[in-house]
Nucleic acid binder design. Structure first.
Length: 853
RNA sequence: GGGCGCGUAGCUCAGUGGAAGAGCACCCGCCUUACAAGCGGGGGGUCGUUGGUUCGAACCCAACCGUGCCCA
């Protein structure tokens, strides 16, 4: 027998272990069933799962579990990425605690240490995934640094290199002076920071020109001043030279169309080695690039400032200029966008350096085309614009990182300046003087291969044949650009134009109950493990799924997860009621001699199955949850079970068993644990994980039964309303006579109406003190023994009257308008006519009751 | 500065041309033998503002105000 309350802690771990032990999540590449595959966006091996992961995983698990039940060969492939910078940072911090640096250990020993950390940290995430109930295929778990995936990295690098799509060049890149590595554009986060805007006069007298800058210290590396070619103010100066203050160097004044004449004075200083725009100006005009900082952001030139950090150098340079009378204006604070390292927050320094790049133009065009021509669908479609915005304006991708943890760039340099890219099955060149590139690849370079490297590529494995392209990729819209675009580029390139996935389903970010971003500093972070401990995995999942409107952020709160927990408990108790009342799934579902109430609930069930299927296909998980929540709670619990109390028949027991069976199946993808526990108890079958998904049966749709029960509900509700307004206690029975049941087609349900509305049959001395007329044509005469509260009744009827009057007036206004009756479609006009008739009938009825009071 | 969203009940959100909805919160009454993690009833919104299109606008168009995100 089931306990009175659902206790998730007693169910979850046991069930999960059994599922895994039984191999229920293991996919079979040799199966004849159609494939449905999802690759899990790999979490960072260094991190832990936060509530955003829980959302992402819940959505994927719901999709994969349903497909598995639908008879697909369903594969959900898990794994992690190696998170180059983050992981190296963690291990370096550990070393620093004992006063060591990675250089003390040497490259090999350091990498060995990182592997140890990976074993420790990675296990944590895997444990968290089991707590969520993720139905992933653990036998196929992968890691971006494992042997197979590393081979994939080498293979694609070599292929891109040979195709001329990977090149090495000296460019301005984003440099983190703390992590001491290059970063790609997407590893830089911009924020509006307070700074200063300083206007500096270069040159003197008639030839003086004023430039404004937020980075005064970079003037030490200026090699030109630029103005717009059409700017009349400066035309006479173009081609001349001006003396650069503090340095004594003379620099040219050049004309460049990219200068905005409206900004500041219209003249800009040009520092090609420390600003990407200036670098381009420098290229166009053949200007030298003068690097004035080292890798730590420390000034390396010009005596007085030598050795100063860039942020110390700034005020020092301004002070020196002020001493020379060259500061024309200063604005402080001056808010402007500043780039920060995504990993450590340090202000990024644009730095001229020699790096490896992927030439993205042809790859990005193909990635855009795959969506443009419909081979890949983005859900929700509104977000395709953002996708195009990214792939159509992509810069070349800097892929080299000055780290030790990652895939080392497979390029060797020879003594004569040779550059050789070594493929996965090739031997590096032997002999003296050959060295391998010191750098490793961006983590995203290997993550971009995830949808096919995890399936065995570059080998032509059965997995790859069966499961590529994967069916749907689920991730947050915040990494649409970070990752999705790159998987598209590499997938299309490596797999001969075959897309890595058919659908990209984007969800939002989890926020708190006021729509605020979760952050440690704000103290509103939810730990999914904490919720699972306190409310259960199913409640946590349901809370997230119920908020998962496509593309929209998902607000959650403790109140809501309580509500979800309550819902799980409701299911528990509904099944408990069923079991103690003989609900069964044995034998065929009787269809011949069913009562109206049974036909009604079966009919409702068919609508719900159809709706849920539609909603799942549209990735509308929030709506799936809403539909099932209301069906379970309103239709099944509040009405069907209540109508069944004291009215159990063998047919009813079979129908009730069927309804519970189907409901639990429909909910299983969202709330796997409680449904598994209940369903196996109800049916005696071993597991719901691979039970078949319900299919709607049109033959069971019964409009007449639905109408009849709706009328029954209306009578009961009207009486309950009267009772509540009259202050009649719920337990108190009221003597009443029901009239008009025959005409309303409800005579068979008098007993049900009496029990749900708590009405007793009239005796000989019955004297009606109140008369209630329900819209469906039923009149209820009640004997309240003279305790009728006339004022309360008048108020109640008054409200009804006002509502009916308003309705009638609205309809009449429409029908009196010839423009409406002429132009509106006939069904609409007819509907309004019917509404008017109904409103007028209500009005007459209510007015009659008021008069009778 | 450029681009993309969003503004509907106290809170969080559905609804995208023909009757203003849900969950939670709130108010009233109840331990009615599945469930107090519950049951019954109820109040609450000129759908951001102003114009326009339409017989008809929360929904389409324009402008404005507020707000969020991405990019520079």
């Amino acid at each position: 027998m089931l306990s009175a309350q659902y206790a998730p802690g007693e169910v979850e771990q046991r069930r999960y272990e059994q599922w895994v032990a039984d191999g229920l999540f293991t996919a079979d590449a040799a199966s004849d069933k159609p494939a449905f595959a999802i690759v899990l966006p790999p979490p960072n091996v260094t991190g832990s799962l936060h509530i955003g992961h829980a959302l992402d995983h819940t959505v994927q698990d719901a999709l994969i579990r349903r497909k598995r039940m639908q008879g697909f060969e369903a594969l959900w492939l898990p794994g992690m990425d190696h998170a180059g910078i983050a992981t190296q940072n963690v291990v370096e911090r550990q070393l620093a605690a004992s006063g060591q640096s990675r250089h003390d250990l040497g490259r090999e020993a350091f990498v060995e240490k990182v592997w140890q950390w990976k074993a420790e940290s990675g296990g944590k995430i895997l444990g968290q995934m089991t707590r969520l109930g993720d139905s992933v295929d653990w036998s196929r778990e992968r890691f971006t640094m494992d042997e197979g995936l590393s081979r994939a990295v080498l293979t694609i690098f070599k292929r891109l290199f040979d195709d001329g799509l990977i090149y090495r060049a000296e460019r301005i890149i984003n440099w983190c002076p703390r992590c001491l590595t290059a970063l790609s554009d997407i590893e830089v986060e911009h924020s509006d920071d307070d700074g200063e805007l300083v206007s500096i006069r270069y040159g003197d007298g008639a030839d003086a020109i004023v430039v404004a800058t937020t980075r005064a210290e970079t003037m030490l590396g200026d090699t030109a001043v630029a103005v717009h070619p059409d700017d009349e103010r400066y035309k006479h100066l173009v081609g001349t030279e001006v003396e650069l203050p503090l340095t004594g160097r003379r620099i040219p004044i050049v004309a460049d169309a990219h200068v905005d004449p409206a900004f500041g004075t219209g003249a800009v200083k040009v520092t090609p080695a420390h600003d990407p725009n200036d670098f381009e100006i420098g290229q166009r005009h053949g200007l030298p690039s003068l690097t004035i900082m080292d890798e730590h952001g420390v000034i390396t030139v010009h005596g007085p400032f030598l050795g100063l950090d860039r942020f110390e150098a700034r005020p020092a340079v301004v002070a020196a200029l002020r001493a020379e009378g060259r500061i024309v204006a200063e604005k402080r604070p001056y808010t402007h966008a500043v780039g920060h390292c995504q990993r450590c927050g340090t202000t990024v320094e644009p730095r001229l350096s020699l790096q490896w790049f992927v030439k993205t133009e042809p790859l990005a065009r193909a990635a855009g085309d795959a969506v443009r021509d419909g081979r890949v669908r983005v859900e929700p479609p509104e977000l395709t614009k953002r996708y195009f915005g990214w792939v159509d304006n992509m810069h070349d991708w800097c892929i080299s990182r000055q780290l030790w943890w990652g895939h080392r760039i497979p390029v060797w340099y020879g003594p004569q300046g040779e550059v050789v890219c070594v493929g996965p099955d090739e031997q590096p060149p032997a002999g003296d003087g050959w060295t391998q590139d010191q750098d490793v690849l961006d983590t995203w370079f290997s993550s971009a291969l995830w949808p096919f490297s995890t399936l065995g590529w570059p080998d032509e494995t059965p997995d790859l044949a069966k499961f590529y392209p994967t069916s749907v990729l689920v991730t947050g819209y915040d990494i649409l650009f970070f990752w999705v675009a790159r998987m598209m580029m590499f997938g299309l390139y490596a797999m001969d134009g075959r897309q890595p996935f058919d659908v990209v389903m984007l969800h939002g970010m989890v926020r708190d109950q006021h729509g605020k971003k979760m952050s440690k500093s704000f103290g509103n972070v939810v730990d999914p493990l904490d919720w699972i401990d306190r409310f259960g995995a199913d409640a946590t999942r349901f809370t997230l799924a119920r908020g998962a409107n496509p593309g929209a952020d998902v607000p959650v709160s403790e109140e809501w997860v309580q509500g979800a927990r309550n819902f799980c408990n409701k299911l528990w108790n509904a099944t408990r009621f069923g079991l103690s009342n003989g609900a069964t799934v044995e034998g065929d579902l009787p269809t011949g001699d069913l009562s109206t109430v049974d036909r009604w609930i079966l009919s409702r069930l068919q609508h719900v199955i159809a709706e849920v299927d539609e909603q799942f296909e549209a990735y509308e998980l929030a709506k799936v949850c809403d539909t099932l929540y209301h069906f379970a709670w309103d239709d099944v619990c509040d009405w069907y079970l209540e109508l069944s109390k004291g009215a159990m028949t063998p047919q009813r027991q079979r129908v009730l068993g069927h309804v519970l069976d189907q409901l639990l199946r429909l909910l299983h993808p969202i709330t796997p644990f409680v449904t598994e526990e209940l369903w196996t108890t109800l049916t005696g079958a071993p597991t719901l994980v691979r039970a078949s998904w319900p299919a709607a049966d049109q033959a069971l749709v019964d409009d007449a039964a639905e109408r009849e029960v709706a009328d029954l509900q209306r009578v009961v509700t009207e009486v309950r309303r009267f009772r509540a307004d009259q202050g009649v206690k719920p337990a108190q029975k009221v003597v009443a006579r029901l009239e008009g049941l025959d005409a309303a087609g409800l005579s068979a349900h008098e007993g049900l109406i009496r029990s749900l509305a708590r009405l007793e049959a009239p005796g000989a001395e019955f004297a009606a003190t109140a008369k209630l007329s329900v819209g469906v044509g039923v009149t209820v005469e009640l004997d309240t023994r003279g305790t009728i509260d006339v004022a309360a009744e008048r108020a109640r009827l008054g409200k009804d009257q006002a509502a009916a009057e308003k309705e009638a007036a609205q309809c009449r206004a429409k029908l009196d308008n010839p423009a409406f009756t002429d132009k509106a479609p006939e069904p609409v006009v007819e509907k309004i006519r019917q509404r008017l008739a109904a409103a007028e009938a209500d009005l007459a009825r209510i007015t009659g009751q008021l008069d009778a009071l």
